[in-house]
């Protein structure tokens, strides 16, 4: 399987260790990742989609045209990038006049879009194309004995008609992927609640956004035995990690749940070096890999 890695902005700018984890773990699973040279911002919803629709769709088309030229679909971890591109594609292909306008703009840069390349979320590819069985047999260390909770990226669930590959009301894909690594995934009342980290919520209303996040963390604290939180979206990752520092500073309760992108956890279970695949975080994560069980010695 060959896919074009679409890194977005936040991953290379702030969490390139996640990019490293994706590159090494996907290679281990037999997926060839090709670069999309000259890719640009997805565009993020707070940029062109909020000011100019032509600009939005031209940039969306720009990124998909690079993948199309290489004959690959796009592999995306960031929820917003995935949703922006997927929705962009839906609009471009949804009307002949829109597609013509996008191609008119792209022609200025010598580019063109037919619609052959599809944006795919990384959990969709891992669950539906690779499969939990293959993932289970690729690991050398297990999370046996550890409890996890999962954070489903909203942008991969809604609107299901455009972005969907999981059950939008009762998602299970990320849960099963984490279970494949040996962890027990605990359910809790706020499991399907948004992290609140994307868009303008925290930027316009920091105290309210943190109170919103506190509901989720308090539910994790009181209803689960979680040792870690697993996400598959760069915004969920950075926000759920960092907001614990603010909540702990501003309130009476201390929160220190290690937060991992799924592929970071997978790469660690495959035996890759945490200094390369999981080196950047606010809440320390080394306790988790120290508790992993080696499957090599068990056999």
């Amino acid at each position: 399987m060959r896919l074009g890695l679409f890194p977005g902005c936040n991953m290379p700018a702030l969490r390139p260790d996640v990019e490293k984890a994706i590159r090494v773990s996907m290679a281990e699973l037999g997926v060839e990742l090709v670069d999309l040279e000259g890719y640009v911002c997805c565009p993020a919803f707070g940029t062109f989609p909020s000011c100019d629709e032509d600009g939005y769709l031209a940039l969306s088309g720009w990124n998909m045209s690079i993948a199309e030229e290489k004959g690959v679909d796009l592999l995306i971890e960031c929820g917003s990038c995935y949703s922006s591109l997927r929705t962009g594609r839906h609009h471009i292909l949804g009307s002949d006049s829109t597609k013509a306008r996008v191609n008119e703009l792209l022609a200025i840069a010598g580019k063109k879009i037919d619609g052959k390349a599809t944006p795919r979320h990384i959990t969709d590819v891992m669950y539906h194309d690779i499969g939990c069985k293959t993932i289970r047999s690729s690991i050398r260390k297990s999370l046996e004995g550890l409890h996890a909770v999962v954070q489903y990226p909203c942008h991969t669930l809604f609107p299901s008609e455009i972005v969907g590959f999981d059950n939008p009301a009762r998602p299970h894909v990320l849960r099963e992927l984490v279970e494949a690594l040996g962890a027990e995934v605990d359910s809790y009342s706020c499991e399907y609640m948004c992290c609140g980290g994307a868009g303008g919520f925290h930027a316009t209303s920091a105290p309210q956004a943190e109170a919103f996040a506190k509901q989720k963390f308090d539910a994790i604290r009181t209803e689960t035995k979680a040792d870690l939180i697993v996400v598959s979206c760069i915004t969920c990752l950075m926000y759920m990690d960092h907001v614990q520092v603010s909540l702990s500073k501003n309130g009476d309760t201390k929160y220190a749940y290690p937060v991992f992108d799924y592929n970071q956890l997978l790469a660690l279970c495959m035996g890759f070096d945490p200094r390369q695949v999981a080196s950047i975080a606010d809440v320390p994560r080394d306790g988790v890999w120290k508790q992993m069980t080696s499957l090599d010695s068990a056999t």
């Binding site: 909203c154 948004c194 303008g200």
Partner: peptide, 15 residues
């Protein structure tokens, strides 16, 4: 109205 700028872009409302 400033409120559209507080949207988290999760698209739950569309669903």
């Amino acid at each position: 109205d400033d409120s559209p700028w507080a949207c988290v872009t999760c698209s739950r409302c569309e669903e």
